[in-house]
């Protein structure tokens, strides 16, 4: 079984992250933006795991668990906020919620 070079994983992670950034900045639907953010998070997780393997150090893997837990908690709070905004404005479009401005 041949080792896959770590650079592949890093490139994949970079791609995933970039997709996440572009998606989060271009989409208007709050749920979709939220999903792209999760994508960026998981790209980072992939980088952690990759480097952990590269250096034979478990710290990166441990950190991933933390990220997953925090992401889960964040998802709870984030979805709750989105739900409330949607109920109030009958739309999940982030551009409709732009009161905090000049």
């Amino acid at each position: 079984m041949t080792e896959v070079a770590p650079s592949y994983f890093l490139v994949l992670a970079a791609l995933l992250f970039s997709i996440g950034v572009v998606g989060a900045l271009t989409r208007r639907n709050a749920i979709v933006i939220f999903m792209f953010i999760e994508l960026m998070l998981n790209a980072v997780n992939l980088v952690f795991v990759t480097f952990s393997r590269m250096w034979g150090n478990l710290d990166g893997q441990v950190l991933v668990f933390f990220v997953l837990v925090v992401a889960a908690a964040e998802a709870v709070v984030g979805l709750a906020i989105i739900l409330l905004i949607t109920r109030r404005r009958e739309s999940a479009n982030v551009d409709d919620a732009h009161l905090l401005r000049w």
Binding site: V21, T26, V94, H98, L99, L100, R101, W102
Partner: peptide
């Protein structure tokens, strides 16, 4: 300077990026 605050999430996101 106040016009920098648009209230649109994407503006802040781009700035952030």
């Amino acid at each position: 300077l106040r016009h920098l605050q648009t209230g649109y999430v994407r503006t802040y996101g781009v700035t952030f990026l």
